[in-house]
Structure formats: C-alpha cells, structure tokens
Write a protein that binds this DNA or RNA. Structure first.
Lengths: 205, 205
DNA sequence: TTTAAATTACACTAGGCAGTTTACTTAGTA
DNA sequence: TACTAAGTAAACTGCCTAGTGTAATTTAAA
C-alpha cells in the first residue's frame, strides 16, 4: 500500500487540494470561501492556511500544476512513409481529445474565470501552454521541406489549425453555449479540419 | 441644443451609465462597488438606486444594450456578377473590423467576466449574437445553389469561417495574450481566411 | 512514556459591499 | 412664490470574507 507511507500531513494536504479542485470547478474561485473549502476538505481552516499561506497561492498552485499536467507534451514526428492526411489526422485527434475533456474545460474555466481581471497572470499561464505548439510546428516545417506542404507562414498556419479545432471544441463549451462533443462529432470535426487545412496547404503532385 | 432639453434626471442617468461603462471596463463588475460608481458619476448612491434598482439590473442593462448596439446587423447579399472571393473578403473584413475593436473587446470582457459563473445568462446573450450569423449562412446557401461553392454542412462551414477569424482576432485579445491587430495584420488574416475557406469549398470550374 | 509537530475549534480582527433610511436641499414649474 | 419631484450626504444594517491568535488535543515516532 502506497497509502500507508503517507504522513497525516500529506493526507490533509491532498484532501485540501481535492476539495479546492472540486469546489473551484463547481462554484468558481470567487464563490468558494476558505471556510467552505475547509469544511469540504474535512479539515480545519487553520490547517488550510498552514499548507497554503493564502487563497491566491492555493489557486495558482492548482492552476499551474493541473494545467501543466493536462498538457503533457506528446511526441509528434514527421514520417516520410505515412500519408500526410493520416499523420495530420492523428495529431488533430489527439488535440481534440485533449481539449474536449470535461477536466480540461473545467480547469480552463477556473483559470480564466479567476484570472480574467489579472490579465498579466493569465497571459503567463497561456504562454506556458503555447510552448507545446512547437511539436506541431516542427512537423509542418518538415512536411514543408519534403515538399508535401506549401506554407509560407508556419506559425500562422499552426494557429489556423488550432483555431479550427478550438472554435468548435473549446470556446463554445467554455462559455457554456454548447455541450461536449460526442465521439461522432469529434470525428466529423477532425475530418473536416484536416480536409480544410490540406485543401489550403497540400501541394498538388 | 439638444442638451438643454434634457431634464436633470436624464443627465444624472446618463452620468451613471457612462460611469458604469468606464468603470466596468476598467475594473470589472465585481471590483466596482456601487459607492465607487456613484463617486465616479458625481452622483449620490441613492440616485444610482433610484435609476437602477440593483447592481445586477445596471449590469444587464449595459451588457444587453451595448452589445446589441455593437452588433447591428448588416445586409450581405449574394451577387451573381461579383467574384466570389471579393464578396467573401468584404464579409470577412466587415467581421474583422467589428471584432477587432477595443469597444467590442472591452464589452465582451465585461460580459464574459461577469457572466462566467452564470452560464445560462451568458448563453442567452451569446445566442442573441449568434442571430447575426444568418446573413452569412444565406450567402453561403445562395453561392452553393449557384454552383460556386460546394458545401454539405452550411452551418458548420460558417462556423469554420468564424473560428478562423475569432481564433486570431478575438480570443487571444480577449484573454489579453495579444494586442489588437494592426491594419496590416487584419488584411493578412482576411486574405488568408478567404483563401483557406475557398481552397476547401470553392468549386473548380 | 515522553516529546514535538501537526491539527483543531473557535473567537476575533479588519475590512468590504449591497442596499436602506433619514433629514435636508435643490431645481423647475404652475 | 409656493409646491413638488428629484437629488444629496452620511450614517446604518446585515452579511460575508480573508486571514490570525491561541489554547487544547491528537498523532507518530523515539
């Protein structure tokens, strides 16, 4: 049992983190008081403050940590012997499946809701996320150099790809206007996205 | 002088609305107290409450009214004798110029920031906005019927177009990650958007 | 069994905010 | 000029929240 090795302090800390996660998701940061949080975590308020010196520290710990986890980078390398649309579809599917998660959406909502009037902090977090773009950009570059794509502005093209995906799978859900995509809808979006992108940039042999 | 005809009461009301607009934009709804607002408007707090029975009423008045104003619908009709890319570019430019306004962004930030944890209200406001999609959809339909475009799912295609634009001109700016686009950048985005869209859907004669 | 660190309950500080009440003043109008 | 509708200042209610101080209790380990 790994559980047994945890000290009481560690267990309490985890309870606090779990409670914060679920409460922030459900009510938002603003509407979750530290008293309420302590109650949910079954822990005294003083203990919360022993682990996190302020509410802000707790929030930022969660946002940074969880967002980072959610976006663990995957390798995505250009393969000369696999059809282009197949490779791209793989990437798009991966991206959709990441973004179309209740977990990811909830978290983004917490972060954005909280950081909306602290734009510099929001900006910093977003930049961390932007880092993961590179593996796609490298792929585009490689495909470009092999003459399979014809892209002038790789950064912009990768942005377009993200826009096509996020415009369907992220922003509408984030603002609560649409429900999570079904598997069927995901497939549709993935196919259409790849088709549009390649229609624009694939070279005609 | 139109000003002279305004009663004192009307002048006060306008002062309140102006103050609310600017304060909400600058600090957000949450961080603007009614005391502060009254002070900015140079009006007693009681007067604020005489005009708007609650803070919420004031907020919703502004959000509805101003957002509505910002999105006054324009006619956009299919013309058989004008090149397709030119027509589409006109629409895209119009859309970009609407969305890329400080006014529109500020307002959206107020609305979204305020309504983030009141998703059903946010949803309602967003739906009002969605109404204006129709003129684009009608255009797509007409172009489709004239055999100039080949679109199966018109609603989705119009969504893609919006995504391509908003992914560049709205969301990054809303979250404070990027500055407003320059005229040059707007032009670039408009051209690229039209090109990608037509690469996907324009029929090859 | 002793010890030290962590946890707890709970009272408390200090401040913020929405909205109300009251007694008084101003401005336009009949 | 007198009346009335509106505005004003300032104190006040009632509620909520972040964060602290402390004395007593629990826990785990030496």
């Amino acid at each position: 049992m790994n559980e047994k090795t945890k000290t009481r302090s560690e267990l309490k800390r985890e309870a606090i983190i779990e409670a914060a996660k679920s409460a922030f998701k459900e009510y938002g940061v603003q509407a979750t008081s530290m008293d309420k949080l302590a109650e949910i975590a079954q822990v005294s308020k003083r203990t919360v403050y022993n682990h996190f010196s302020s509410k802000e520290e707790l929030v930022m710990y969660l946002v940074s940590d969880l967002w980072q986890k959610a976006v663990a980078n995957v390798a995505f390398d250009y393969q000369i012997d696999t059809p282009l649309n197949e490779q791209l579809l793989t990437w798009v599917n991966y991206e959709i499946n990441l973004i179309c998660t209740q977990e990811y959406l909830d978290l983004s909502r917490v972060a954005i809701g909280h950081l909306f009037y602290n734009l510099s902090a929001l900006q910093k977090e977003m930049e961390k996320l932007a880092g993961q773009t590179t593996s796609l950009q490298q792929w585009l570059k490689d495909a470009n150099e092999h003459g399979q794509l014809s892209i002038d502005d790789i950064e912009y093209a990768s942005f377009q790809l993200h826009s096509l995906i996020e415009g369907c799978c992220f922003w509408p859900q984030l603002t609560g206007c649409k429900p999570l995509l079904t598997e069927q809808e995901k497939k549709f979006v993935a196919d259409e996205t790849v088709q549009m992108f390649l229609a624009r940039y694939q070279t005609t042999k």
